[in-house]
Design a protein around this nucleic acid. Sequence first.
RNA 1: GUCCCCAUCGUCUAGCCUGGCCUAGGACAUCGCCCUUUCAAGGCGGUAACGCGGGUUCAAAUCCCGCUGGGGACGCCA
Length: 474
Amino acid sequence: MTEKVRVRFAPSPTGFLHIGGARTALFNWLYARHFNGAFILRIEDTDRSRSTDEYIEEITKGMKWLGLDWDEGPFRQTGRFDLYKSYVDKLLKEDRAYYCYCSPAELEARRKEAAARGGALAYDGRCRDLSSPVGGPPPAVRFKMPRKGRTIVNDLIKGEVVFENERLDDLIILRSDGTPTYNLTVVVDDVDMKITHVIRGDDHLNNTPKQIQIYNAFGYELPEFAHLPMILGPDKARLSKRHGATSVMAYYEMGYLPDALINYLVRLGWSYGDQEIFSRKELIKYFTFENVGKAAAVFNPEKLLWLNSQYIINSSSENLAELVLPFLEKESIISAGQPQIDMAWLSKAIDTLKERAKTLIELAASLRYYIAEAVEYDEKARTKFLNEKNLPYLVDLKDGLASIPDFSVSGLEKLFTSIIERHGIKLGSLAQPVRVALTGGTQSPGIFEVINIIGREKTLRRLEKAIKTITSRT
RNA sequence: GUCCCCAUCGUCUAGCCUGGCCUAGGACAUCGCCCUUUCAAGGCGGUAACGCGGGUUCAAAUCCCGCUGGGGACGCCA
């Protein structure tokens, strides 16, 4: 095949870009990039009652955040209705389609009845052979499925899947209001846009034989099909709002890095030996359908969280400093109007924190004691460490800190060593009270680094406050 | 109900196509140890899976059949 690969992601704007959609988009994108093909974004908005421009905006926003850039589009189906209509007319003329006068209410009733009886829910074809028009409200148009033979889907992932044509029902291709439906538009557009590979969720596998029949009716060559396994929630049911955050942008808000989400998503259904972490370059290089699995996958937020922490650790602190800014504002650690924060200093602070933060929100939160003017003590930490016994150590340290010339990490270490030797105590006996005095809690990066970053003045103020806290209580 | 898809540790997966190298590998989570000024990170180790039943074969996680289980579709949604 020398034809250039052309794939598309075709969401309907009836909701946000969710995890499942993002995974479909990602696999399409990877496939296109791997083969140096084109990735097309097409908005399937033929259902005018449920589609909104806001959702189109949300979907493109999500894709941009994930870095899934498209080469053509976004195309919308609204506005191409004349085109679809002409295809319907063609089918009508060739007796490959017919008018159906059954009302939605009647159809609904028949389906209910069939379900109660335990029979097939497909359309019974009662308008299929009508010889003359029936009066009343405008009819819908149905595609005339062949009743004999079988349709074979040669799926790149699932292999050969066989459907008996008698099981395929005559689907509606034009609503009674004159608007086309999905199964028609998807074929017309995929042909029109010269799509070579249709890559989508396997919930579409059952639609495929019907679409193949439509291709056949027009005499068009079939694209390749690849149906990806679904993503399930922890209860093994299809991933939905019930399972918590399913919108891609919710992950932005929770402080995830787009690369981490991408990496997580790609491993849901795809693998490359034992490798877990991939750069985009590697993904593009390695991605093929050969390594795509067939079984549905359960979405596991904990592994995503781990990946996110790995991506944070491996990101440059300069980059993280930029990314964390909006979260610092949101957590009210800095105010939007605040004088410019020193980015070099921020990066240095992040150096000490990034291996402790799993999300940008955690990173922002841990920056609080570096940035804020004063800290609040954790009650338990205070009673345990800010007490009479530790008072002399803190006083000693304060005096030492006020006078040492070398405020570097190694200089601070020397000071600490001299103090603990003088008192005959272990480093921990000094470090923990100091940690509480400076950060308010018992957990932080190495104490020398903390002091180094907080700086002499602020450190001294906090030590004084801690000393006062102890003495005022006795 | 009918049709379609799927089936390896709790979860994501490697291995399956081209049977033997599988005493089934990796990762997350979990447990323990090490490192250690706390917390992390990191290192080391443990627990943990071929759904069941039949075949085929000298040999089956790997091939075939059935069952069971799970998922999906059955819309004038996409």
